[in-house]
Nucleic acid binder design. Structure first.
Lengths: 168, 168
DNA sequence: CAGAATACGTCAGCTTTGTTGACATTCCAA
DNA sequence: TTGGAATGTCAACAAAGCTGACGTATTCTG
């Protein structure tokens, strides 16, 4: 039933063949590899991994964010995030400050060194995105965003939209 | 390095604001989570991980493929792949046959049980893709593919195209 | 105000999945 | 025929997830 491309209601059925769905799956797989390849190289040189990149990215994006908020965005356990955060703080890329209003909270910021690393990581990643966007064109990019947004889980889309609103 | 990014004509430059590039980064991150979420649940129930999914997917896609070929597609070390393959073979989801022509090679196939698991995994993943495609529309999907393809590394794109040709 | 709830950190231990290194087998070419 | 690639396996280690348990502030609430 999944394999047979069949009698079609030309408009929607033809559009959603198994072939096209599978093609999208493989495209996502191969593209994601490219997407992470450049930052991964930089990170490896300094003994960090992708988990460090994610933490740095979202702290940069939401300076002063709390540990708990970061947890929700990243979708990992606090033990897992803590391990990463600890090394980043030790290495003086991130600072953790007790909250003014609620002293249980810790507010996270990048240090100048952290900002510099974030910059080099996102520059590397952006170069590839820029090239891809340019190759594909403006309309393609609009479609790209639409499909990605539609693919997110509900709560991830909430985070995504919240971040988007911060700068638009 | 790989990309000779250069001339800055106003038209393209304006189009590629940092905002838009960052938006794409975050969209990829959040969407990829959704993309893997459904199969991950099924896999976890059976004690497998994402690595098993990838192996099963590409063996299904290229029956009789060799370990070495799979290695190139997946981009991991043979030792890493071997571990996954060993459990799949033990669990009788995959068979490994000594090559006729070259006895160093092992040709991989899914067993009926393997096919059944592949089916349930791809069904789960496809449901989400289908919904996303439908929500975004045909034009958006075309753009989605274009951008993803442009984002791949050169050699990944080669694999991608080779697979595409098999069924088109 | 006492106790429950929240935010954060940490210890211990386990799993998946990546890595290198060492090694056996097989093929091919000089 | 022999030495070097190529292919695949076994062993040991590392990164980064996870669960569970617990300690310590701090805040909220009945």
């Amino acid at each position: 039933m999944t394999q047979s491309t069949q009698p079609k209601s030309v408009a929607t059925q033809l559009f959603l063949t198994d072939e096209q769905l599978r093609k999208g799956t493989e495209a996502m797989f191969f593209a994601y590899r490219g997407f992470t390849a450049d930052p991964d190289r930089i990170l490896a040189d300094r003994g960090y991994g992708r988990a460090h990149h994610r933490a740095i990215h979202f702290i940069h994006r939401s300076p002063g964010t709390t540990v708990n908020n970061l947890l929700n965005i990243l979708g990992v356990t606090k033990q897992s995030l803590n391990r990463v955060l600890r090394t980043l703080i030790e290495d003086e890329l991130v600072t953790s400050a007790v909250g003014q209003k609620d002293k249980r909270e810790r507010h996270l910021h990048l240090t100048p060194m952290g900002v510099a690393l974030e910059r080099s990581l996102s520059d590397a990643q952006r170069d590839r995105m820029r090239a891809a966007y340019r190759a594909a064109g403006a309309e393609a990019v609009a479609g790209f965003w639409q499909v990605l947004e539609a693919m997110m889980d509900e709560d991830m889309r909430r985070h995504y939209e919240a971040l988007k609103d911060k700068t638009e």
